[in-house]
Simulated scan of single mutants.
Amino acid sequence: MNLLRDGAFRALLFCQTVVFLLLTSGCEGDSDLVIPPHPINATVGEDIVIPCHLDPVVDATDLTIIWWKFDRDPKFVFVWKDGEEMKSKPHALFTGRTSVSSSNLKHGDVSLKLQSVKRSDQGKYACHIETLMREAFIDLVVVQ
């Protein structure tokens, strides 16, 4: 009789584990950040997009997205939190020049738009999704 109960318990535990794995396998935590494998080139004065997206696609609207640059203090270039841009966070050199497309966030596109590129914008950038604990790095090369 105990063998029957033990077998039934194991079967139930197995089924619960399988259901849990199925439910969590499609969660947003499985997404990775994808960026180009090469530096982004820009010319002084132009507007550019530094590409970065989640794969598989996850609606990023409610995620915390942080773009930062290694050689700045504060490092923040752009911060998106609780469904809106945190305008008080970026370094003064980036104020009013950076954005993400709120409509593209729904499709996992967290690319950074940088307006009026300056020579000082050159350097290494990080796209960080705090909510998912994901980060990707890309270099921006600026020419005259």
Rank of each mutant, 00 (worst) to 15 (best):
E84D: 13
S99V: 01
C27N: 11
W80G: 06
I40Q: 07
F20M: 09
P74Y: 09
H128M: 11
L93S: 15
K75V: 03
G83K: 14
E135W: 00
P37D: 15
F70C: 00
L114C: 07
I65L: 14
S99M: 08
V49F: 02
C127T: 07
K124D: 06
L140N: 08
L105W: 04
L114N: 08
L54Q: 02
C127Y: 03
D32Y: 05
S31F: 01
P51C: 07
V18Y: 03
S31H: 03
L132A: 11
P36N: 07
T64P: 03
S99F: 11
P36G: 05
K106H: 12
L13E: 14
L22S: 10
L22M: 11
V57H: 02
D71F: 01
W67F: 14
R72D: 09
I35F: 02
L132M: 11
V44E: 08
F14S: 15
L22R: 14
V110M: 04
D82Q: 14
V141L: 13
R72C: 09
V77K: 03
K75Y: 13
I48E: 04
A42W: 04
R5I: 10
I129P: 00
S120N: 09
V18I: 15
L3W: 01
G96W: 05
K69M: 10
F20Q: 12
F78R: 00
A8R: 12
P37H: 09
I50Q: 04
N2G: 12
I50G: 02
V58S: 06
L112W: 14
L132V: 07
L93I: 12
T43A: 11
E84R: 12
F137S: 08
V19T: 09
K118P: 02
V44N: 02
S99C: 07
D121M: 04
P36C: 07
Q115G: 05
P56H: 08
P37N: 14
V49S: 09
V142G: 07
L63G: 02
V143H: 13
T61F: 09
E130T: 12
N104L: 14
S31R: 04
F76R: 01
N104I: 00
L23Y: 04
R10K: 10
T95P: 00
W67R: 02
V143F: 11
F94I: 11
P56L: 12
V34I: 15
V143S: 15
L4S: 11
P39H: 08
P39K: 08
A8V: 10
Y125C: 04
H91K: 06
T64I: 10
T17K: 13
H107W: 05
R10A: 15
V117G: 07
I50L: 15
C127K: 06
M1H: 10
H107D: 13
H53I: 05
L93T: 13
P90H: 07
T17G: 08
A8H: 04
D71A: 14
V58R: 09
S116M: 03
K113H: 06
W68L: 12
F70V: 13
V100Y: 02
T61S: 15
W68R: 10
D71Y: 01
C15W: 05
L3F: 01
R119L: 15
A42R: 04
Y125R: 09
P90E: 12
Y125L: 03
W80Q: 07
P51L: 06
C127P: 00
S99D: 13
L33T: 05
K124M: 09
